[in-house]
Write a protein that binds this DNA or RNA. Structure first.
Lengths: 338, 338
DNA sequence: ATCATCCGAGAGAGCGCTCTCACGAGTCGC
DNA sequence: GCGACTCGTGAGAGCGCTCTCTCGGATGAT
């Protein structure tokens, strides 16, 4: 083991050991083909021997690239990582795809309002080549500001309002319509919904899917109670629904957690599922297979959302153009609750 | 808005605009006090006007710091982000604490075996000032290799085998002992356990807690079935336990997910909880409040694990010494299942 | 054999920053 | 009133890398 006295080896060190110039070593490191094979070989040997690893700071100082991508999670701190599997799944998808491309993942948790500025500053510093924004809430100004800052941006979920940055989303409405069709096919005709918050696109589109799905049922009137995607809100909303109409024979909940809450309320009030009331959720989280009874739900390809986000941002960062939006299909997972 | 023709403003640009030298601007940016107030003020104005943000690559090239910390999650891909809230909680804790210290969080998902080398290379490149390792599985060689690479390391959970790097962990065994004491106080005397995998420290220590806890019960014999912390394994293990001994009147499950599984098996086989069989879990995940009946469980301060990890790695990165281990307390959350 | 061509390799500048060192001006003591 | 300080500021080197430009030698054409 050849130890260089002065700390970690640099290109210079490798060049000396291999008897070549810094430039040539750099060529080998970066995979240039215009290097004589035997020279390249001796350089590679020197690199291995010295345990040389390029200094990324020096490199990005000149290349103006950093080979890292930021993933911003601007959810309120308490919600981001509830037992909802969405964000973890997206993180994993993004992480895997970036790993393949040999890029780094920088996680920016934007819990507080103050972090807004911090993120903007950070991104302005050009520490990342691109930004993946997992924005879920309403008309966030962040996507726009980032775009204005000149950084490539991709968001998860169609932004509310003007969609000025490319996004990846799932076909919320059509997934819900499939669920509604299934319920109607089961002969249900008093179909209620527990909607998500209406300041989120996911909440709005799932409700829209319910409304258009209901049109296939002549004379049916919408029966809506709003929740916040979490379990407790499903429990409460189901109670309100039954108070408003005890004859409900089906309910579509805009999230699995709320569907699970609804299941609990129904059980407590003596309704059998699916015999008396059929229940369908949305998300297909792990736990949906373990509810009582197992939950019929609309599956969304969370992992693929992540990988597609990564793909898009990498193309954008490489200067290529990408489609303004990619909408991934959802599909109905039929289990026992409907 | 003064636009510099050549792209983003640099220190040089700011210096010219403010009529000062690069060195002085650097002083202001880095908060040196030895700058005349009026000069500092005009420099600050120039910075604001130009929207100057320091180039981190250039900075770390000279300071040899990067102001970022890597969080390595070396779990097998499928398990990391199941509905177990552990890793998300730790990420959030680490993220928050790093945000306060104005450090960045780089996420390294080490799903495959190949990523081992990638991580080592990455860390060798000194792109991070320190590494937080959320290692859960057995005698991983990574902590040791990282230490050998000369990077500050802190792990979450005591490493199996030689503990050569500082770690943060929770008091698994004493938490379980509290649970056992509670069960014994309830008058139970046929207490079984669904243990975690024995190649993880958490699995081993929780089992150890069960065994020592059981000693308070004269003549009691251990009754153990092993699970993998996931729900299905709890369902299965509970079945095996009842086959082995139908008279079980209490069970401690080493995770909430397994406890939930046990609850299902018990319900299916007509056992009432807690009347016939008392059940206690471990973790206190969000969903534990929603099991049927609500789960009595050992709470561990997940978020604090994250913040403490961050704290330790920051101190280490700053060249300070830290305690070899920090063990955080657990506490029994008594709900209705026991 | 001579000249144009090409290809592999080295020299050197420069990316944007920090930090040491030197320097000039003001302050203090005697 | 003069040397000894102090204190704010600027000049300049250098962090480790990439990339352009140049150059020497080998090759091919005439």
């Amino acid at each position: 083991m050849t130890e260089t006295p002065a700390g970690r080896p640099t290109l210079e060190t490798v060049a000396r050991v291999a008897g070549a110039s810094r430039a040539t070593v750099s060529r080998v490191v970066n995979g240039s083909v215009t290097v004589r094979p035997d020279v390249a070989e001796s350089i590679r040997r020197a690199i291995a021997e010295l345990g040389y690893v390029p200094n990324p700071a020096a490199r990005s100082l000149v290349t103006q690239r950093t080979d890292s991508i930021a993933l911003i999670l601007p959810e309120s701190a308490t919600r981001v990582f509830s037992d909802d599997a969405f964000f973890p799944g997206v993180i994993r998808g993004v992480g895997e795809a970036l790993e393949k491309a040999d890029k780094q993942l920088v996680l920016l948790l934007a819990s507080t309002q103050s972090s807004h500025d911090r993120i903007l500053r950070y991104v302005h510093g050009r520490t990342v080549d691109g930004v993946v924004l997992a924005s879920m809430h309403g008309a966030d100004t962040l996507p726009e500001e980032l775009r204005a800052a000149g950084v490539p941006v991709v968001t998860s979920g169609r932004p509310l309002g003007e969609a000025t940055v490319p996004y990846i989303d799932v076909a919320h409405a059509s997934g819900v319509r499939a669920a509604m069709k299934h319920l109607i096919g089961l002969g249900r005709h008093r179909i209620a919904t527990i909607s998500g918050p209406q300041d989120m696109v996911a909440g709005r589109e799932r409700l829209a899917g319910y409304l258009t799905g209901l049109e296939a049922l002549p004379g049916a009137v919408p029966l809506i109670e709003e929740g916040d995607f979490m379990r407790q809100s499903g429990i409460d909303a189901m109670e309100r629904l039954l108070e408003r109409d005890a004859g409900i024979d089906a309910v579509f909940a805009a999230s699995d957690l709320m569907a699970d809450g609804a299941l609990r309320t129904l059980r407590r009030l003596g309704r059998r599922v699916p015999d008396d009331v059929a229940v369908i959720g949305f998300d297909d989280v792990e736990a949906a297979r373990f509810t009582d009874p197992p939950l019929t739900t609309v599956h969304q390809p969370i992992h693929e959302i992540g990988t597609r986000l990564a793909e898009q941002i990498l193309r954008l960062a490489a200067g290529e153009a990408v489609e303004a939006s990619v909408v991934l299909p959802t599909r109905l997972m039929i289990r026992e609750s409907a």
